[in-house]
Write a protein that binds this DNA or RNA. Structure first.
Lengths: 252, 252
DNA sequence: CGCGCAGTTGAAAGTTTTCAAATGCAGTGG
DNA sequence: CCACTGCATTTGAAAACTTTCAACTGCGCG
């Protein structure tokens, strides 16, 4: 079973604008609806828009119309704070949805930019709302999506408010690992889609600190890193660090 | 002006269980619906449950059924992390809604406890979903509420990931001030509903740091504090601090 | 009146940031 | 194909903040 999905997943990196049913629909629309309902849903979704690395999907303050489902690649969202600095607010992988935080305003509350060549599906939100009143499971699904988003954001908050640099980075690594796993990709060896820069911004750390922690983790045998390529060598230890109270030895 | 509002505030602490239309409905249900729809909504809401200081409204991991609107008083939400420590995830004032982050699971993802004698309205979520399919504006309203929640959580995240203790505390003070203002209470003089303890947990700071920053702000003439009573003396300066890059002078 | 908890303060210890500088890697133009 | 320029990453050392540990003060309640 997983094999079938895995091969489907890798194909998803190419563009399949013509495909009738998106191969990731089990991730971003994983609820049971009738065939007819799926069709109505697909009618309103513009599938397979391609964005190159560095291109925007939407920009902060521009008119909000659609949310987007990531189909392949990786996206980061960020805001520019009052003092003009960019602050990364999230990383999004295939199967995840961007823009839900903007549905309460007329303008996007953050910008979304591709970290690498990506493909996204555009989902006009007004039409989702219309359709949701007719398909209760769809409404339910969107409530769930948004609720999950709140929860995840809460968790990030908790991470930032209590944890050390090591715990934060271990958490990010494990989170990415789990999300890759969900896509049936390797959860112990993958490429970080974002520069250290963005990791630091996201986790509230200086780039240098990020770099140092990666180095330290490598010396401790927890991971291997070479630029963006990462291999998790000791998952239990990473999890142990996340749980806190696992002091890492600095000087041996 | 502030005097008038202050006295209104103390009155609001009393209970008004008998009112047919909640006086705060403009805050928690601020959308235009027909009289009939309001009634249907009020049918499913259990108004005016009173919780004493320290009592729980719901506990983490218990079965999720309802969300709650705060009517008077103040509520904190918190989770217990894997190493057993309590971590405050939010403060909720009248007109605000608790529990939206749990709608995607069968169990509450955090606990909610009253910081002082409070009154809350219980809103069974399943019934909201039912009703929302019939009343599009209600559906829209809940999408908005949840989206706003995501956005606020994002903002807290941004606060925690970049700012110093001073910026965080200034932000909290200003946020409370704005929320009191929305309730037509004084926005320059109010009582902090939570102990320093909880402020620290919420902002990711040690209690001692919270205390020191309050003292420092007072010495700088930004605020006056006496225990929980707080007066904002220099709002522009507080806002300046939030914007960042306003180095506070420690030793003069 | 005393206990206990919340809040404050001081000093030392520990992390992270900042500043500076070196190294590596990649795409560009000669 | 190679040198060059620019950006990303890494490292070192000093500086800045926050935490931790300890102790003290103040206030409410039994």
């Amino acid at each position: 079973m997983s094999e079938t999905f895995a091969s489907t997943a890798s194909k998803a990196k190419g563009l399949q604008q013509s495909c009738m049913h998106c191969s990731l629909s089990n991730l971003c629309v994983p609820f049971a609806v009738s065939h007819d309902e799926i069709e109505r849903l697909e009618d309103i979704i513009k599938q397979g828009k391609v964005v190159n690395r560095g291109e925007h999907i939407f920009k902060e303050h521009s008119t909000f119309r659609s949310i987007f489902a990531v189909r392949s690649g990786a996206i980061k969202t960020y805001s520019v704070s009052e003092n003009g600095e960019e602050q990364v607010t999230g990383f999004y992988l295939p199967g995840e949805i961007i823009g839900l935080d903007s549905t309460n305003t007329d303008a996007y509350s953050c910008s979304a930019k591709a970290l690498e060549r990506s493909s996204v599906c555009e989902i006009p939100f007004e039409q989702v709302e219309d359709l949701a009143t007719k398909i209760p499971t769809l409404q339910h699904h969107f409530f769930q999506l948004m609720s999950k988003e709140i929860q995840q954001s809460r968790q990030l908050t908790m991470l930032l408010s209590k944890n050390t640099a090591e715990e934060r980075i271990a958490s990010l690594i494990v989170s990415l690992s789990e999300r890759f796993k969900k896509r049936k990709l390797s959860n112990i060896q993958f490429r970080l889609p974002m520069p250290r820069n963005d990791i630091g911004s996201y986790l509230g750390l200086a780039v240098e600190t990020v770099s140092r922690v990666f180095t330290r983790f490598q010396k401790m045998g927890l991971i291997s890193v070479q630029g963006r390529e990462l291999v998790i060598e000791n998952m239990p230890a990473l999890l142990e660090i996340i749980k806190g109270h696992t002091r890492c030895i600095k000087d041996e």
